[in-house]
Design a protein around this nucleic acid. Structure first.
Lengths: 209, 209, 209, 209
DNA sequence: AAATAACCGAGACGGTACGTCATGTCTTGTA
DNA sequence: TACAAGACATGACGTACCGTCTCGGTTATTT
């Protein structure tokens, strides 16, 4: 969502085309759907967006950064409406997450940038800040809401609470991604219900153990 | 683990060098460590292996297939020694899996080929048969062992049992991979214990629900 | 002498390097001398010229076209100074032609492109327009001059005159090339005088026959 | 016409297949017609001849030598029947030579091997002995016959006679080849008659000059 | 209004890797 | 020992993209 050069133009000169960014990101997603990550070329994206290749390089450092931004936009729609109880909230976020993962532009792009991020710390940070943290916030928000409802106990030890939140996040995100992209099976209502039951039972039982 | 052309040479002609395969896979892993997936080139692998590029293309269709085979070999060492009880068994396999994922050749390779497999069904099958199914067998084996010990009830409904096994597998593999590669946090004894407690509590509680 | 894309760039974009063409053709001739046609590679020419291989392919379709242009440049120096009489003119052009053929870059290149042109009409046209026609013009010019001097009769039948010119041209060019490249004997003053006497005697005698 | 290893097999072992040589040369000519010199590959020739590539390399050093032999066989049929007078003899040999040059296997092969021979003395000797000298003999034979008939004077100076024969040979062969392969015009009866008149008039006039 | 400055399109540039092909050598098993 | 089959190391092929650069031209702000 953020162009490479975060600092706004200091002084005079022609301002950057406002529409170009959106066109480029849309073109990137379209190219991801048609070609997939590995066949996607920046020249092709530029052509699709009706933009010169140089314009593209002026705003993003490379393919990775561009695709992160293009995919991150898909996660803007993630939110956590209050469905009344913790189980329903979890099922809601799982299904929402799965719905995004089902879209081919997310499928093709997400795993590829994660793969690249393994050897590129800057890219990992970019992914974390624009995609992962946004998901994690939902977990924290859901827990706070459940604590307000009395479904979960208050945090006595903040550090332990953070560790638990990380664990839960890895379990949710990991399981859904693995189901959707590795096992390539649908994340449907049945699976979601079973998974949620497993997770919440584990949580409440662990809390008392 | 398996070259592209599985059928052995029918008739005459010089047989394929037996040592070449191993040299190529080793060179591929070395290149993965040094360069990562995206910078790895087949020409470089050929040079490292002391082999002609054509020899490489004669045996694998491309980079993806080669890397799958090279990475799959890492998972050969996965096994499930009987540690006496279910929790210990789960912790054992999680740590073992995490140990493999911690190796840079696995890190770089695994996610990349999974990302590519999204648009390539043949590749997905190859990954499934040579990597994923091998992991899943451990889950099934662990469950059978736990049932023998009386830690888990016998399967009444085989179909439901299969669904549950799939769920557990996605949760274990997904959580470990997400922790290790996305969150980039260590899968240490602490985390493993917490995760295992969550999983097993969830399982036993869900079974009675 | 002429790059593949004769039309100059219509609109914007970086202009083609002006010096590249000359550098490439010179490098081609140097490589012809050192390596000969069959060992000459475009990659090597590109390296010698300090130019990328793609630049080379952007301007010429392949080895044949490049070598034709490189060799054709050698024939730019062909001219027909007025030596006062027909015999001297013929001897002059024969010796000039032979001097070019004696240069190793011409030797290696000319026969090879002619050989290739047998199966490639476009190449034949290229050779004709940039090499052969230039030689033929000298024959026509020499005849016109001889007619002005009264050494040859005026043309009554233009068509017959054209046929005769073609014949003379094939005889001169063919004999010189065959002597120089097939027989591999020197085209020196003696041979040239004998050949010219044979040709001119044949011409004048035939005209009256 | 001659395999590389002229010495017959000295001792035991499986004898060379007698039919293989002929099959290979025929396959070479067929490939020349279909593909031309530059696209012809030894592997393809071997396949066409139903022969292993190694067999081919055992008998010829490479593409050049093979093609020379294959093309040379075409010139076996050159002969000089006595047509009664010198002009008819010359026209006969010109037309015969042109008929061979009109065959696509000769067109494609001859110029190419000549081009290669420029940088390869061994190849030049091979061409000379198996192709060029055979043509030159016809010139000498024709002259002897004309001298017997009284159409040409006897040789007083043998060295001068040899020089003249060389000149005539270069003129005939060069003109015909240039007409056929460079100008790409037909060597028909008209052209042959004109050329012969030019040549013989030049010869007789020069002799008296 | 003029000058300045950064943007824009187009496209050529030096490179790198691709996947294929041909060369000439070698290793098999069969005759 | 020669043969057919075919794998092998080597290295050129022509193509596609990479990321950079050089153009001529186009907006904006600053003087």
């Amino acid at each position: 969502m953020q162009s490479r050069t975060s600092a706004p133009r200091a002084t005079g000169g022609r301002p950057r085309s406002a529409t170009a960014d959106a066109a480029i990101l849309a073109a990137t997603r379209a190219a991801l759907v048609e070609l997939g990550w590995s066949k996607l070329t920046l020249g092709d994206v530029a052509t699709r967006a009706g933009v010169a290749k140089t314009t593209l390089y002026r705003r993003w450092a490379g393919k990775n950064e561009l695709v992160v931004d293009a995919v991150a936009a898909l996660f803007d729609e993630l939110e956590l409406p209050d469905r009344g109880n913790l189980a329903a909230d979890v099922e809601g976020v799982v299904l929402q997450f799965a719905a995004i993962l089902a879209r081919p532009e997310a499928k093709s792009g997400l795993m590829s940038v994660v793969a690249e991020s393994i050897r590129d710390d800057a890219l990992r940070d970019r992914i974390r800040s624009s995609i992962v943290e946004r998901q994690k916030l939902l977990v924290l928000e859901g827990r706070a809401r459940a604590q307000q409802r009395g479904e979960l106990p208050e945090d006595n030890d903040p550090e332990a609470a953070a560790r638990t939140a990380d664990l839960i996040f890895d379990v949710i995100a990991g399981a859904v991604v693995h189901r959707a992209l590795v096992s390539a099976e649908p994340v449907d209502a049945d699976w979601t219900r079973s998974f949620t039951r497993l997770l919440l039972n584990g949580l409440t039982a662990s809390a008392t153990t």
